[in-house]
Amino acid sequence: MFFLKIALRIQACVFGDYDNKETEYIDITFGIPKNGRWDLKQFVLSLIVNQHGIPLFMNTHSGNSSDKSTILEAINSLKSALSPESKVYYVADSSFYTDNNIKNIGKSFWISRVPATINEEKELLTANLNLKTLKSDERYSFYQTFVEYGGVKQKWVLLLSHKMKEKKR
C-alpha cells in the first residue's frame, strides 16, 4: 500500500515587480494570501509527497489559482508519470472534495475531509448517531455510513475525540 499526500497551496510570496513576459509559465500576481500579506504578489506550488514526506512531484501555478482545480491536475500528472505496483491512496484536504474532482479522478483510491459546505455533512453532524468506541483507543468514537456524492459511492467516517469535546465545553 502506498500513500501519497497532496500538499497543495504552498504559497510563495515575492517582492519586486514581475513582468509576465519573464514568467511565461505562471502568472506571479496577487491572490488570496494565507499569511495575510495582501501587499505581496505570489505564486503557488502543488506538491505531492509519499508517506515518508519525500517529494515526488511539484508543479507551479499562478498566484490566484484555485486549489479545487489544480489538485486534480497534480494527481493526474503524477498518475501519468508513475505506475506503482501496489495500491495507491491519494490523501488530500477538503479542497479536493468537489463534485467535479470526484467524478474525474477515475478508479483511484482517495481519502479526504468532507467540507462543511456539503449538506449531507451538516446533516450528519447534527444527527443523533450511535457512535462506537474504537477498540484500539477508547479516547475516540466513530460512526461510518455510505453515501453517494458526485456520482461515486463512498464511505464516510465521523471521528469524535472525547478530549476535544470536553475541551470545547
Score class of each variant (00 low, 15 high):
141 S>V: 01
101 N>V: 06
153 K>V: 11
130 N>I: 03
39 D>N: 04
150 G>C: 10
118 I>N: 01
91 V>P: 04
63 G>M: 06
41 K>H: 02
111 I>Y: 05
99 D>C: 00
167 K>C: 03
155 K>V: 07
21 K>N: 14
73 E>K: 09
105 I>V: 14
102 I>T: 07
47 L>E: 07
13 C>Q: 10
119 N>I: 09
63 G>E: 05
42 Q>E: 15
57 F>L: 12
151 G>A: 12
37 R>S: 09
80 S>I: 02
5 K>E: 10
98 T>Y: 04
9 R>I: 11
63 G>I: 04
31 G>H: 05
16 G>A: 01
115 P>T: 12
103 K>Q: 15
3 F>M: 05
38 W>S: 11
12 A>K: 02
158 L>F: 09
93 D>S: 08
78 L>I: 06
82 L>I: 15
124 L>G: 03
122 K>S: 06
112 S>L: 05
163 K>R: 13
116 A>C: 01
13 C>W: 10
130 N>K: 08
160 L>C: 07
40 L>D: 02
55 P>F: 03
79 K>A: 13
58 M>F: 13
19 D>C: 07
153 K>Q: 14
166 E>W: 00
87 K>H: 09
100 N>K: 10
52 H>Q: 13
119 N>T: 14
82 L>N: 01
8 L>N: 14
111 I>C: 09
61 H>I: 07
112 S>K: 01
146 F>A: 13
24 E>D: 15
24 E>S: 15
53 G>S: 03
73 E>M: 08
140 Y>Q: 08
162 H>T: 09
1 M>R: 04
153 K>F: 06
140 Y>A: 09
37 R>G: 08
93 D>W: 06
139 R>S: 06
165 K>A: 14
65 S>Q: 11
10 I>P: 05
118 I>A: 06
126 T>G: 07
1 M>Y: 01
156 W>M: 09
142 F>Y: 15
120 E>C: 14
94 S>H: 06
74 A>I: 02
68 K>M: 13
64 N>A: 10
147 V>T: 08
84 P>K: 01
69 S>K: 12
137 D>C: 07
44 V>M: 07
17 D>V: 11
33 P>A: 01
88 V>D: 03
72 L>C: 06
131 L>Q: 05
49 V>N: 03
113 R>M: 07
69 S>T: 15
150 G>W: 08
76 N>I: 00
72 L>Q: 06
127 A>P: 03
66 S>M: 05
43 F>Q: 10
166 E>A: 12
145 T>K: 11
46 S>V: 07
141 S>G: 08
149 Y>N: 00
24 E>G: 05
108 S>G: 12
18 Y>G: 00
157 V>Q: 10
138 E>V: 10
122 K>P: 09
44 V>H: 03
42 Q>W: 06
26 I>A: 09
44 V>I: 15
46 S>K: 07
129 L>Y: 04
125 L>I: 00
139 R>Y: 11
132 K>T: 15
